[in-house]
Design a binder for these strands. Structure first.
Length: 506
RNA sequence: GGCCCGUUCGUCUAGGGGUUAGGACGUUAGAUUUUCAUUCUAGAAACAGGGGUUCGAUUCCCCUACGGGCUACCA
């Protein structure tokens, strides 16, 4: 019998922005699926109605689309296993929970939140499980008649798994090897909440089964609850179909204290979310990698290298290469601290690597945001070719390319004024005349003429080169001056010299 | 506290019973670029500690320490 088609899922909760770790989980799922000609499923885990955030689901879709790892099935795409939102699957879960109760693997519990709180205060290290189960109000401790009465009255209740005593749960993790838990340490997790919604624990098992998921990649934070899931797979009679587990190492804060969270962005000065996230309630904007100027290629690349590597010296990988080279065996066990400096390096490498044409849409957006409307794509393309290697973030395009489309508003006068003189004014006057007559306005020719004029007037090239740059650019940066002049064209170059002469002379 | 997972330069990591422990980011120094960035060259920088096993452990085993995760009618 051949093994079933590989199917993986990315199952986020729509509770806000999608952070780094989430995208990496999605990426690893995607890589594994595509490498094995499998399906990548998006499932929205919106079973907690108190944490549901409007717009978060669309945001997640947009993030995946931006990254280029779009799901084969999902709430927007559809698929054979729809619906893909757990809230829309609500009616499915009760049946399985009740089945577990009937089999004695789960039970009704009537404890109120207040009662649970009290118990937790009273008993240190309280666990709702075999040791205290009998002290609580549930169908294992109450008389059958009383349970029926409570049920008939519609008393709010949950269904909890009945974790057995003195058993050992063993399972194989693709990343960690054999993992062992003693059931005595596992508590009776709630499976079905009082509002009729399943908890993650029930929903993930039922849906993974129903959706024929073969491999489950998720964060390491889920490792402690894995025994509950394993038990559920067994009790539901689906053990043979249980997916292979792979618990991914966490992405940690740069200072190594805890897993990376949304708040760390502001604290360390880097983005944590994939894209800008606007909290409609507080109006708070959490910046994203996309808006800060990251290329999705770079974002994915750096994420992939956080916890995985193919073994060689190569560090730059396209998505296709990642799909080809990815292997679960080479995922690390230890958590990785996020390093923003290295993240920026990946981005700079990708900007260099990518064709200028690829940058066109982003460049236009960035320039337009600064009030520069680019009509001439050809010119922008030439400009980008000239300056893209000098950009670390896409947003650097404004500084590096803006002056090609806009006369400098300010000049770095400190770099010129102290050494300015009337003779320099004369020099540039002559330069204007020369530029007016140059037959073809090309960088090479301009440079030759410029140098010739220097010789003629007795200026050292260095003395007039920098002022010339500042006239055209505004500051001490940018590619070769004569390349800039050529692109600016005769008219604009001369206009800028004339304008700057006024500023420098005053 | 309990349980689980982990531990190679500051960071991401390669390696693996005998190696000058390799690469990358960052950092330092120099070269190039008559601006800045790039680029190039060189340098500093690591096997958490203690016990075993072994002729030999950074590598295998155990313990300790440290780090992380979980411990909700959140995921």
């Amino acid at each position: 019998m051949s093994s079933p088609k590989v199917r993986v899922r990315f199952a986020p909760s729509p509770t806000g922005g999608l952070h780094l770790g989430g995208v990496r989980t999605a990426l690893f799922n995607y890589l594994f699926a595509k490498q094995n000609d499998g399906d990548f499923v998006l499932r929205i885990e919106d079973t907690d109605q108190t944490r549901f955030v409007e717009g978060a689901e669309q945001y997640i879709m947009d993030c995946l689309a931006w990254c280029g790892i779009t799901p084969d099935e999902g709430p927007h795409t559809g698929g054979h296993y729809a619906p893909y939102r757990q809230s829309e699957r609500k009616s499915i879960y009760r049946e399985y929970a009740e089945k577990l109760v009937a089999q004695g693997h789960a039970y009704y519990a009537f404890d109120t939140p207040e009662e649970l709180d009290a118990k937790r205060k009273e008993i240190p290290n309280f666990q709702y499980g075999q040791f205290y189960r009998s002290e609580m109000r549930n169908s294992t401790s109450l008389k059958t008649a009383e349970v029926e009465h409570l049920l008939d009255q519609g008393t709010p209740h949950v269904i909890r798994i009945k974790v057995p005593a003195d058993e050992t749960v063993r399972f194989h993790d693709l990343i960690r090897g054999n993992v062992v838990f003693e059931t005595n340490q596992v508590d009776d997790k709630v499976l079905l909440k009082a509002d009729g919604m399943p908890t993650y624990h029930l929903a993930v098992v039922v849906d993974d089964y129903l959706m024929k998921i073969t491999h489950a990649f998720r964060g390491e934070e889920w490792l402690p609850s894995a025994p509950v899931h394993i038990l559920l797979w067994k009790y539901l009679g689906w053990a043979a179909d249980m997916p292979h587990w792979a618990h991914l190492p966490l992405i940690l804060k740069p200072d190594g204290h805890g897993k990376l969270s949304k708040r760390d962005g502001a604290r360390f000065g880097f983005p944590v979310y994939a894209m800008d996230w606007l909290d409609n309630k507080t109006g708070e904007l959490t910046p994203g990698f996309r808006e800060l100027g990251f290329l999705p290629e770079a974002f994915l690349n750096l994420l992939a290298m956080l916890g995985w590597n193919p073994g060689g010296d190569q560090e730059i990988f396209s998505l296709d290469e990642l799909v080809e080279k990815f292997s679960v065996e080479r995922i690390n066990k230890a958590g990785a601290k996020f390093d923003y400096e290295k993240a920026k390096w990946y981005n700079a490498e990708w900007i260099k690597k990518v064709d200028a044409k690829r940058l066109l849409p982003e460049a236009k957006t960035i320039l337009e945001a600064k009030g520069i409307a680019v009509a001439d794509d050809e010119k922008l393309l030439k400009v980008l070719t000239l300056v893209k290697d000098r950009c670390i973030l896409l947003t650097d395009i404004y500084q590096q390319a803006g002056y090609f489309f806009e006369t400098p508003k300010e000049y770095d006068l400190n770099a010129v004024k102290p050494k300015w003189s009337d003779t320099k004014t004369d020099f540039f006057g002559s330069l204007i005349n020369q530029f007016k007559e140059v037959p073809s306005f090309e960088a090479m020719q301009l440079e030759i003429d410029f140098k010739y004029l220097c010789e003629e007037t007795g200026f050292k090239i260095g003395d007039v080169m920098l002022p010339f740059r500042i006239m055209l650019v505004g500051g001490k940066f940018g590619p070769h001056v004569f390349d800039i002049a050529e692109l600016l064209g005769r008219e604009e170059t001369i206009a800028r010299i004339e304008k700057a002469l006024v500023a420098f002379g005053s």
